[in-house]
Design a protein around this nucleic acid. Structure first.
Lengths: 339, 339
DNA sequence: GTGTTTAACGAAAACGGTTTCGTGTTAATA
DNA sequence: TATTAACACGAAACCGTTTTCGTTAAACAC
């Protein structure tokens, strides 16, 4: 086992000072050609690499980004991480991922762990518990300490920071409008309680599209589940209790499961029932039939979030201006609707 | 903006030395009751939290784990991360995730970035390029430096370190045997080139099951794609070129797509064609029909990997004993096969 | 009164770098 | 010859902790 070599080691071996070694390795003008070559050759030979921790302590910059998200098994979040990684890595940053698992407490604990010097800034999406509690003190504390935060997708307007969202209302609108244009009139909506910011906005888009087209909003055609968790029984019961010729769901899973229930009832997709979901993941692409969805462009979202964060981290001036970027969702038409 | 407070700040305000503050906060016996209470009260009031970076530098321990994986959008890896997170967080560790994107170079760069003090150990799964090149010098260098490494799933035996794998050969065997027991005789296999350790093992299980049952191995019934990337055209062509009554695929996506092709050909699943895939993800569960798979227990794998790594990191003695844990895959029977 | 113990605290080194500010030597200039 | 500038390098502070090893003064023993 050969331990890592330090500046001190090099200095001792070469009988120069630590400062000289440091400068020589940075190709400083201060150091003579001879010495520089000698030091650099020695460093290369022994594969010297500066200790990141020491540099972080000195610079008060870690080149680490903390990402706190509710879940990692959902395709959307996974694509966002990929986008963050892509941009961050290109800029020389590492990504520390923490999972809140939809728990307020875990979100707080994770943030506190990271906020004590481990990261230069946060990119996060709120847990459902946090959105339900409306308690954002952990976010406020962090921003007050001067640590930049970028909120994406599941955000709150109660915290002053940069934000990246998609226009979920528009997404709901586009999807519903599309169904109406196909001649559907009895459009069901499977969503979650309104405390989830995205569900609420999607529902608003759905309602607006109906109203704009002169259709009634039938509350009985709207199923609000408590969380994004699958509940097969309630969805089955729901379909037994209503008449419908189309279904809009706030995620992929609800939508794919809805298709299964419809098929089991002997209904044809999209003739008898058209289905649209949110999130353009593997599930949508490979479902039978393939699923029309509102794509959220998670990777793009991740890239933009990372860019906004790193801009803030690296900007000297302490600006107190925050922006909210709104991405446009797009409809990806597949076989669960007509085209 | 209130900046974080340091020991020095507390010392100045209270007119004691830094050492006294440090000891008081750790409840040292050396410090008087009075002083301790004064310091602790002050620290609480100003919400003092020690700087992680400084502690890392001192202890030469970061409480960070580096995870380097080929991809994050695949369900299997995502469940492994979740398992790692779970165990690591409970032990007070953070997880730094880096994506190699199946590229050798990115794998090397990511490891080098992290190996200079940012992490206490690595958990990783090899990129396909690395497995193809059979170049493991970056791993060897890291282990020689005394940084513990745990390899999972896509491993190599050329590096001395702890390993966690599932018995992929057994997985292939169980699946194939199951198909044979259902009366299937013309079982196709869709896999990748042998350089991917897992594909190779799964193929071996497939062959063994056939031989054990007295069936011939028809090489024409085996499709080897270059990578795990989807290639719809080659899979379609493959199905045109052979006779088959069952398909075993080394991942979910190939399997679900195979089902679609079969359905398009008017074949019934599982009567005309039974299908089994690897990875018990969302896709399998919500596909129509639902897909029988060999479950890899990714979360368990992640937990065990984290446990092995942290054990090594925290053990004082420098043991040179490495173990390989082999998890048993299980068959999850759904509607794409009989049961 | 002298020597020893103990309690309570501080100085300083250490972790591994970066950076500012000397300082001694040599060469160029007045 | 005296002054100055350029060059090449080192000492030391600093980032925020932890920890060892004094040090001081009071308390105690004899």
């Amino acid at each position: 086992m050969k331990a890592k070599i330090t500046l001190k080691d090099i200095a001792r071996e070469l009988e120069v000072s630590i400062s000289t070694v440091s400068k020589a390795l940075k190709n400083s003008e201060e150091i003579s050609r001879d010495t520089k070559e000698k030091v650099q050759a020695f460093a290369r030979l022994y594969n010297y690499k500066p200790n990141n921790i020491a540099i972080s302590l000195k610079n008060k910059r870690t080149k680490n980004i903390g990402v706190v998200i509710p879940d990692i098994v959902h395709h959307f979040f996974t694509t966002v991480i990929r986008g963050i990684e892509k941009y961050a890595n290109a800029k020389g940053y590492n990504v520390i991922v923490c999972l809140s698992e939809e728990s307020f407490d875990k979100e707080v604990i994770n943030m506190e762990m990271l906020a004590n010097g481990s990261i230069d800034g946060f990119i996060m999406s709120l847990s459902s518990e946090t959105q339900a509690k409306k308690d954002y003190n952990h976010l406020k504390e962090v921003t007050e300490q001067g640590i930049p935060v970028v909120l994406f997708d599941r955000i709150t307007h109660e915290v002053d920071c940069d934000k990246v969202i998609i226009d979920d209302k528009l997404g709901g609108y586009l999807a519903t409008k599309n169904l109406i244009e196909q001649g559907k009139r009895k459009i069901a909506l499977i969503t979650t309680d309104d405390y989830l910011s995205v569900s609420k906005a999607r529902g608003e888009g759905y309602r607006k599209a109906l109203v704009d087209s002169g259709l009634n909003i039938e509350e009985s055609r709207i199923l609000k589940l408590p969380t994004m968790e699958m509940d097969e029984e309630r969805i089955r019961d729901f379909f037994e209790s209503i008449e419908f010729d189309a279904v809009l769901c706030v995620n992929e899973i609800f939508a794919v499961f809805s298709m299964r229930v419809a098929l089991e009832k002997g209904l044809k997709i999209p003739e008898d029932v058209a289905v649209i979901g949110f999130t353009n993941g593997l599930l949508s692409k490979y479902a039978n039939p393939s699923l029309t969805v509102v794509a959220q462009h998670g990777e793009k979202m991740g890239e933009i979030s990372a860019q906004m964060l790193i801009d803030k981290v690296e900007s000297e001036k302490e600006e107190e201006t925050f922006q909210t970027k709104i991405l446009e969702p797009t409809l990806v038409v597949r076989d669960s609707t007509f085209n």
